[in-house]
């Protein structure tokens, strides 16, 4: 492998973009493809399918064996609100393999004593989300109960095309939320992507049960309509 190829591979991974290393096994010949370059590659169709599944593997073409090393960004969850549900949601999401960050400007809530193991940002969403670079591999859960905080993140999540956006609250609360988002210029087809009330309908009651219903809904969003599908544009 050329050092330059490895450097490109690592740079794309660091930027949370899909990237593939193609190796012809008989000759050792290699090329690195960024997501944008995949459609023009002779193996483009196979590679696109691999990016969708996130799985590396062998491809045969005209008697030649190619190994595709597929790198897709790890899926992450950003939780808006360091509330009781979040205390269960953070470990449940980590158990499912998600990177988790929790954002809440209310320092009484965003106290490390309440979240000993979580990445905790005691800031307003508008101040920290630009640095986190929301993308299609990011899930956002809005659970503060406070529109002043939730709405900032909701606008950012809708614009960034996050693959999962869930919002806590009753149907009446959600109707008001949709009105505010329309005032921001979002269309109904954008707003249909918000899952509210948040979580799969399993009649969850306790914070832990709600957390599990949210993680299950995120897994469904990822597996049924993969975030990776759109990565190729």
């Amino acid at each position: 492998m050329r050092s330059a190829d490895l450097a490109l591979l690592n740079a794309e991974r660091a930027a949370r973009r899909a990237v593939v290393l193609v190796t012809e096994l008989a000759t050792g010949e290699q090329r690195v493809l960024t997501a944008a370059e995949v459609p023009d590659d002779p193996l483009g169709t196979e590679i696109a399918a691999r990016i969708l599944s996130g799985k590396s593997g062998l491809v045969e073409r005209n008697g030649h064996s190619f190994f595709l090393t597929v790198h897709v960004p790890p899926v992450r969850l950003i939780v808006i609100g360091a509330v009781h549900i979040s205390q269960a949601l953070a470990p449940a999401a980590r158990l499912a393999g998600l990177d988790v960050a929790i954002i809440d400007p209310r320092t009484a809530f965003a106290a490390s004593e309440r979240f000993p193991d979580a990445r905790l940002l005691a800031e307003w969403p508008d101040d920290v989300l630009p640095g986190l670079a929301l993308d299609r591999y990011t899930a956002v859960a809005l659970v503060t109960h406070d529109p002043k905080i939730d709405d900032q993140a909701l606008v950012a999540a809708l614009r960034a095309d996050c693959f999962y956006i869930g919002a806590l609250g009753s149907r009446a609360t959600h109707a008001k939320r949709l009105d505010r988002m329309r005032a921001h210029g979002f269309q109904d087809e954008d707003l249909a992507r918000i899952r509210a009330p948040i979580g799969l309908d399993i009649s969850a009651v306790s914070p832990a049960e709600i957390a599990i219903s949210i993680v299950a809904e995120i897994i469904g969003a990822m597996r049924k309509k993969p975030a990776r599908a759109e990565a190729l544009g």
């Binding site: 050092s3 450097a7 690592n10 897709v72 790890p74 899926v75 393999g97």
Partner: peptide, 17 residues
């Protein structure tokens, strides 16, 4: 879904560098 922290290739690059 995959776990995060697939850092083998970063280590390889760091060693080479």
């Amino acid at each position: 879904m995959r776990a995060s922290g697939d850092d083998v290739l970063l280590q390889a690059q760091a060693w080479k560098d």
